[in-house]
Write a protein that binds this DNA or RNA. Sequence first.
DNA 1: CAGTGTGAAACTCTTCACAGCA
DNA 2: TGCTGTGAAGAGTTTCACACTG
Lengths: 226, 226
Amino acid sequence: MRRGGVPEATVGRLPLYLRALTALHDQGITSISSEELASRSGVRSTQLRKDLSHLGSYGVRGVGYDVELLAAQIAQELGLTQEWPVVIVGMGNLGRALAAYGGFSGRGFRIVALVDDDPEVVGTVVEGLTVTTLGDLATTGPTVAIGVITTPAPAAQAVANELVAMGVRSLLNFAPGHLVLPDGVDVRGVDLATELQILAFHEQRRLLAVSTHDPLSREADTEAIG
Amino acid sequence: MRRGGVPEATVGRLPLYLRALTALHDQGITSISSEELASRSGVRSTQLRKDLSHLGSYGVRGVGYDVELLAAQIAQELGLTQEWPVVIVGMGNLGRALAAYGGFSGRGFRIVALVDDDPEVVGTVVEGLTVTTLGDLATTGPTVAIGVITTPAPAAQAVANELVAMGVRSLLNFAPGHLVLPDGVDVRGVDLATELQILAFHEQRRLLAVSTHDPLSREADTEAIG
DNA sequence: CAGTGTGAAACTCTTCACAGCA
DNA sequence: TGCTGTGAAGAGTTTCACACTG
């Protein structure tokens, strides 16, 4: 099969494959089977092959995939052949952590601006960039494609509005809460509490499964003890 | 419908509803319709009602939901009536950011230990807790239910192994890369690069949609400009 | 009569089984 | 022969339409 609509679920896994391929490349491995690549990515081999089939035929039957070629194809599909300019808004602990994170450059992203509204912080230099205000970014700053919001929750909606007003249409929001934005703007939310609560649900179910013995909890049993 | 297996997709959204309900409660609002609650959670009202139907009938027809009652029901379903002890491993920028994050206590989680392997950091006090080593945590530390991994990628697998060895079966991994662990251990991964790459894919598709005009990109067009 | 609860339909995603190719 | 690529089946999820009820 050829282009023209990669399923959303597949898009969500392509970064996993790319990560695994990059690691393989760094180890000097040049070829890999779907079985091996799948196990290193945490998916089943049939899923991997189905996913890759949406990009085209880049494997060799009886052999496997060329690591470098496949990585290049996935990078192209994800739009990582160019560097996307990123701004981080909110220079608290999390904002600084992300600014210091090395995995941006060379992987399709470059942090071009850091923003905060605290006069004590504006003007200071963090990771080689001078922190500015949102207003300055809009008037005299570089163009940005992706905005990362690491402000406290109450400020997030206003920050998002301003980013959208200056033309940003992709947001990554680390502040808890749902952002209301115009159609055409793409928001992904990462919330620590949400992740922990999902873990708690499964943790609780595990505990209930071993402590109770009524037939209704069979489902939980099998999954938990497996 | 009544208990005995809440779909995974629903579990992933319950924290969203709980967050919205908590905000409503703080605003003094005591009752809400599925339409309103859905829009504040970023889902459709029919999805919300279907999700809630898996927990039981806690709404009033013609009226809506009691905010406090529904919040309590969701909290119970998620296992948040008890406090889960959490350890954060890796006291870099991100680890400190999470340690400082206020959204734990009172919401079902309590940070009971902070871990690092740098002798310069071990023994220092962060957010009221003395940083220890993994070894000390295993022998003399408190029991933990959930481990949060914020180490550099190369250390993550070894850290995960040690946490599992001491009985932890729920992990939240912020280090890039796939962790291989025994069955029955629940891992959730949060990876900044993955999130950004998914955004990049959509951003690229938007750009392609406006710059090209062949019929094949119709699908992208409608979604992007909508 | 406004708004919940829910079978059934539509859709998406995953897994299976195997054809096809180096 | 070994492994990819893929139609078809199966499982899970979302949406629809509407019965029901306070």
